[in-house]
Every structure is written in C-alpha cells, then in structure tokens.
Amino acid sequence: MTGAGAPVAIGVDVGSTTCKAVVVDRAGAILRHRVEPTHPRTEQQTTRILDELRLAVGCELPIGATGYGRKRVPGATKVLTEITCHARGAFSRVKRAVVLVDMGGQDTKIVRIGPGGDVADFAMNDKCAAGTGRFLEVILGRLQVPFDEVSAHVARARRSVPVSSTCTVFAESEVISLVAQGEELEGILRGLHESLAKRVAALAGVLPADARIVMSGGVALNAAMVDALGAALRREVSVLPDPQLVGALGAALSAS
C-alpha cells in the first residue's frame, strides 16, 4: 500500500442486496473494503464489519452511513442518502460535472452532478422493479444464465429479439415464449438489455447535449448493460472504478 495516506474515515453502504464498506485516506483512495450480501439483522452485520475494519486499521474513525439500511448502522457519525453519497463518491473520481447512473439491486438512480460536485437533480425508479438490476436477475435466473457470462452471450448475438414488456412479470413470460418459439438465447438477452436500457433512459429524461455519463452500482459490472445504456442514451458511458463501492466511498468522504 505504498503511496496511500493514513486512514481518515469509514463509509458503509447498506444496500438491499449487498452491504459495502470502505476505509479511505484523505485523498479518497480506498485502503480497505468489504462487500457482503446484506443480512436481515443489519445492526449485527454492520457492527461486525466495523469492528473488523477498526481492528485492521488500528484506530477509531468517523463513520458515514448510507443506503437503505443507513439508519441502522451503530456509531455512524454522518447519515446521508445514497443519492448524495453516490454523487460525492463519483465526483471524487471524475472531478467534473457528470450524469451518474447508478444501477443497484432494487433501485436505479440518475444523479446530475454539478461542476462543484453538488447534486443538481436526481430521479429514481418507482416502486416497481422494472428498471432495476432485479429485473435482469429474475430473468437471467429463469434462463439459467450466470451473471458473469451474460456479456459474452450478448456479444455473440447475431440480432436483437425485441422484448416489449418492461414489467418484470410480463417480461418473464414473454421471454419464455420467445425461447419456446425457438428464438436464439443470445438475441433475446440482447433485446432484454435494450429494453431495460430504454426504461433507464426514460427515467433520465432529456439530458443536456454535452452531458457525460458515468455508471456505478453492481449492474455496471455487466458490460452488455453498459453498452445498451450507451446506445439508449446515445452517448458514451464510462464505468467508475470499483462501481459497487461508490456509495460507501461517498459516505466515507462525507464523514471525514
């Protein structure tokens, strides 16, 4: 860990699917991190993770908490929503005005970050899972395609098979009937990604002509989704480093 500074803060992002924690230095470099599936007993889980991290760095640090379980993080010194934290985390990496698309398990967020790192505007999907990672997860599960193979499948598609339903339940049955009709799996997967990307683009609304798009969240690890989103938004989309940790990073920076 040469070049890294002293640890200054811990950030915890308790999401609906995974719980993320980071230790950062003054410059915002991530010194240590943890990613685990979220446990129903959030207090116990976060207490344990925090204890481990404190032990590892050997000192007490201010703690920033975010994510849907943010109010159940014992000892948190700063509690902020994931919108604000994702914006801080993303801005510390790009240091310019961008539009952040964060696709997590249950939520998809679009955050317009101003030139000073402020949140200029944001949008989130409604209660329905239609535009979220959950949508993909359900259908990939049904098709028995592992998450880490999906990009390769989509890349092999000779054409896209349109999937019109965006409701998770409808799309599932539509996909099954497409398979039954003998459509190739790769094409269906591509169609599915395009359909989801369109839904996210609708959420984003009308973007300024010069807007730069960056992506975070677990879904950003799926290259096919990044491509589909770029096509739907008609812009290049770049993925932030450690896309899953951006929220926790922002929480840590807010606490420091």
Partner: peptide
C-alpha cells in the same frame, strides 16, 4: 412512507439544503 420514498425526500432536502451553502 415506503423507505424508498423517505430516501427520495431526504435526498431532495439534502440537495436543496446544500445549494444555499454553495
């Protein structure tokens, strides 16, 4: 309120509040 709705409200207030400081 659903948790997600609370988050949206809170994030909005965080955003509006930060603007005055800026």
């Amino acid at each position: 309120l659903a948790g997600q709705t609370t988050t949206r409200l809170e994030a909005f207030v965080e955003m509006v509040g930060a603007r005055r400081v800026a």
